[in-house]
């Protein structure tokens, strides 16, 4: 098992120990932390696996993704420039 040194922040220690009405031993802190870590990671990993499984079925090509991003970004930018009252001057390409 991987080992790590855990420093419990004072405010967390005081909050937990006052709720329980007693001081916790280092072993109890370890149990508490392991349980918390397991639950927190389990939830996130399940979510990530699910997202991965959906993306794996996506048939969108990189070219289509780039085209869509450009379209969405252009539309967003027009709205932003209009609300800001700023006109955008197209830049000349180098060598043009």
């Amino acid at each position: 098992m991987a080992e790590l040194l855990l420093r419990v922040p004072d405010d967390v220690r005081v909050q937990v120990e006052s709720a329980l009405g007693r001081k916790l031993s280092p072993a109890e802190w370890q149990t508490l932390f392991s349980r918390f870590l397991k639950e927190e990671l389990k939830e996130k990993l399940v979510r990530i696996k699910h997202v991965e499984s959906i993306v794996a079925r996506s048939r969108m090509t990189q070219k289509q993704a780039e085209g869509l991003a450009r379209e969405v970004n252009c539309s967003l930018s027009k709205r932003f420039l209009s609300e800001s009252g700023v006109k955008y001057q197209e830049k000349k390409k180098r060598g043009a």
Partner: peptide
């Protein structure tokens, strides 16, 4: 976040998707 990263993540997963997943952790 530029949404071209989001669309790349939706298209091919890989690094663009990992930046969201790892940051979630």
């Amino acid at each position: 976040v530029d949404f071209n990263v989001v669309f790349s993540a939706l298209a091919k997963g890989g690094k663009p998707l990992l930046v969201f997943e790892l940051n979630d952790v």
